[in-house]
Nucleic acid binder design. Structure first.
Lengths: 191, 191
DNA sequence: GAGATTATGAGAGCTACTCTCATTTGGTAG
DNA sequence: CTACCAAATGAGAGTAGCTCTCATAATCTC
């Protein structure tokens, strides 16, 4: 990696770090792009070269692709839910205490700020596609199989409910809740 | 209802009608609030007195509250999924051909435009609360019961997946797909 | 019909975001 | 080391969503 690439990565990280700090300190809406740019010591023009929107600074999550990899890499004999649970365990196990906290902070922020909540949707729409794909492959179905997509919708919905709950109750251990949610789903969601 | 109220309702409807028409004709992003205001023959200021955001003109759905009413009003002996399916049947049965088409058009629009897709999230977050509440009442649980909320998350996720599918495949009969999705969910989502 | 409410329009102002162009900086070939 | 090319940056102008204020006009109440 040349100097150029390293500098870009550093600039990107600095923008996000300052952005998240400012969001936490003074709220998302009250923070302007100009403030973020000033804090990161770049021009406002440059800000938009790194992040297409202000939202994106809060939404960009380097963990996501890693998680998908892990889900695909789970042993083939596992059912799709077991594979997801395994992936969660593997990925979160690799994160340092500090990284975990960053992930959690960003999730809470995104779920609490109405302006950001909206943007989750796109990620979840992608999530359905990805999870349906993983499930279809594991059960030998076509990638656009109706039941696989339906199932993926339920998985994403369940995760969503867990995140929403975690955001409104910061005390809860959201990893435990998330795992319970998947177990309940695996059992066919009895009520 | 006095003249004032009637006029307001008419203005509101006119704004939405013109907005949706313009969105369809030239796309959501390419339509400015000024254009909508001009088409509805009001000032741009007045536009924002009726709709807080441009998005809201596309999202406001008079059918939603009716649907919740119908779900609550279903016979008590039905399971929660059966109650939802019944509510869908009842509500859509009451709509005229034209109203159905309006509802469908707006749903497609919202799911197709990335800028709008985001805003669905808030509605779905509310949806989880509402559906969890209905389910909890029907099964004699606390309103914030973990499993009821988890189940509601799955329901919402499944609906989401159906809508997304319908938006990308306009030929499909999305009412049938929606019902199938609920049946599959009721069966515990076997894969 | 007079006075209190409420809806409206005009316009100024803020901020997210886009685009263009000149300048600087990093990589590379001779 | 120099000369050149490509990429990164900053400055600034412009668009559009959205807010706020204030004056005017329409509706409601008595």
């Amino acid at each position: 990696m040349g100097l150029r690439e390293r500098k870009k990565a550093k600039t990107r990280a600095a923008i996000q770090r300052h952005a998240l700090r400012l969001f936490r300190e003074q709220g998302y809406g009250a923070t302007t792009v100009d403030q973020i740019a000033a804090a990161a010591e770049i021009s406002p023009s440059t800000f938009f070269r790194y992040f297409a929107t202000k939202e994106a600074t809060a939404l960009y999550d380097p963990v996501d692709p890693v998680f998908i990899e892990a889900a695909i890499g789970q042993p083939a004999e596992l059912g799709p839910i077991a594979a997801l649970r395994g992936a969660v365990r593997v990925v979160l196990g690799q994160l340092s205490e500090e990284e975990m906290e960053d992930v959690r902070q960003r999730q809470l922020l995104v779920f609490r700020e109405p302006e950001l909540r909206g943007a989750i949707m796109d990620q979840f729409a992608e999530g359905i596609d990805l999870i349906a794909g993983v499930a279809a492959r594991r059960t030998g179905r076509a990638p656009d199989d109706f039941e696989a997509r339906n199932w993926a919708g339920a998985v994403v919905g369940v995760l969503l409910a867990s995140f929403a709950r975690a955001a409104s109750d910061p005390e809860s251990d959201y990893l435990v809740a998330l795992d319970q949610a998947l177990v309940h789903l695996e059992a066919g969601l009895p009520l």
